[in-house]
Design a protein around this nucleic acid. Structure first.
Lengths: 104, 104
DNA sequence: CAAATCTGTAAGTTGACTCTTACGTAAGCC
DNA sequence: GGCTTACGTAAGAGTCAACTTACAGATTTG
């Protein structure tokens, strides 16, 4: 998850979301040098967020959705909490309507 | 999103997910000093991931689900891609079954 | 094999992040 | 008012992450 901290890496991921792109194409989108982008790609690959495929001298990258599962699971803990809070609020509302008593 | 890079901060968020806890209670869960935890809480607050409420000398913290919306939106771009890929694969499968031609 | 292209790796520098210690601030108690 | 509790803030040290330049490896072309 630390891999997502870097803004460049997030943009790289968006560039290769569902689309295969070469390292050079990706690097062309940034102001930083190609080696820097290459290092970012290595980090993303180690984190399981992108997959690499070699074609001739080029290396093609694409986002790997399964790599985002841990993040999704983490996120869900907070999203569910919100839903639960809404549900609790709704139940309180209903209970109040029935009995008219306010318990704190 | 940089706020989630730090493991301590992620654990703090889990501790205050749907539950209100004081800074002291949170700090007690870690090996690092209270000031360090306090600094983490400040980062999380600035990122909009937790909200603070003062009660006497204590400060109570709780996760703020709305703060996770940008992350959820970012994540969805990749999750949708996966779903779309699965749907495409299913369509291909169906088309293959109907016509019997194997293209690719 | 030599040249060109595309790319990753190594080494070193700079800046940011995280931590600790020391101190300051606000609320409660006697 | 003085003491205690609970907490944040300031300043400084150590560590890690991101970048650049220089170089090396792999593939295609002639």
């Amino acid at each position: 998850m630390r891999a997502l901290a870097e803004p460049h890496r997030r943009r790289i991921l968006e560039l290769v979301a569902g689309v295969e792109r070469s390292a050079g194409e990706i690097a062309a989108e940034f102001a930083i040098t190609r080696p820097a982008v290459s290092q970012h790609l290595a980090v993303l690959r180690q984190a399981g967020l992108v997959e690499e495929r070699r074609e001739g001298t080029r290396r093609l990258y694409r986002a790997r959705p399964e790599g985002f599962v841990p993040l999704r699971d983490f996120l869900e803990r907070f999203w569910d909490e919100r839903l639960e809070r809404l549900r609790l609020a709704a139940e309180l509302e209903e209970g109040r309507r029935r009995s008219g008593s306010s318990s704190g």
